[in-house]
Design a protein around this nucleic acid. Sequence first.
DNA 1: AATCTGCCCAACCGCAGGGAG
DNA 2: GCTCCCTGCGGTTGGGCAGAT
Length: 343
Amino acid sequence: MGRAPCCEKGKVKKGPWSPEEDATLKSYIHQYGTGGNWIALPQKIGLKRCGKSCRLRWLNYLRPNIKHGGFSEEEDNIICSLYISIGSRWSIIAAQLPGRTDNDVKNYWNTRLKKKLLGKHRRQKQDRNSSSSSSSSRSGNINCNNNNNNNNNNINLITTQNPLAYIHDHQPQSMLLPPIPYSNQEPRFNDHSSIRKLLIKLGGNFNSNHLQNHHDDQILSKPHDLHHQEEEEEEEETISSISDQQMLKYTQSANIDLVCPNYYPLQYFPNEPHFMNGTTSTFQGQNGNYENPLMKLQGFEFLYEDHHISNGTTYNFCIDEIMNSLGFPSQEVAIDHGKMHEY
DNA sequence: AATCTGCCCAACCGCAGGGAG
DNA sequence: GCTCCCTGCGGTTGGGCAGAT
């Protein structure tokens, strides 16, 4: 059964709000509040608007202390950091930015920030291409080279510089974000059933046998349209995938500390179900569980290189691009399986 | 000056979650 | 447990504007 419309179409006004409508809505809410019922509110005050429209207008524009435009560098960093951590959950991201609305953050990300980062990424890529002869291992990347020629799944972490230590030592004060209050404000992240639920919501596909049976999930693979686009724009690139089992072995044997963009060290949590839905997995950080910061985030794919752990290919994490985009200099990090991949 | 193009952002749309009955 | 209704959310649209041609 279809949902009943919240208001009768044709009887409500659409489009931009007039100053009179704004004033009516604002004064009513200041005086009486919303009354807990947005649907009934426009009728009460004689506005020919849908309740949802009133709510949106109030939340995004009329309510006190709303800031518009003029995002600061610090806000940019927070948005990037949180987007990398939790994806496009704009309401949560906006909650970390006083005076900002989810709509504002979303618009800002889609129209400017993404392009800003993309521009940096492209420039870096061009720079790397033009100076590719200088190093056998690309500066600033975590490279995992899965040598398909042997069955040894040990993956040795070779770090010329610990990324965590590096970040903690070098990040500017403005980048020292408070921990995302998942535990208190986002109970969804607080227990595994909630995480399971969330992952299902995000398109999760797992069960108790998942780890044994699910070998070739499309984790870290590109959405088709993006891949197509990049094929047109750049050189043809080989896309492969990493299985959850490979990721499990990889993270366990490498004893890897992963970098969470909010700068809390993460460790893989091997005794818990390993959630792989093609985009996410679960890690334990200092203050609870986090999603895998290395997941391929929708809309953020341009930050990822195109090398993955499966079938002897190399997975090249996005951390350097992220860090560089956020203003960090490169660090030398490599994870080698068998032999160093040459760039 | 007129037209085109791309960008920005307010607003809309549809869906999911959750509470009430 | 089921249905209905409201709220909240994220994705998308389209009008207005500025700069380019």
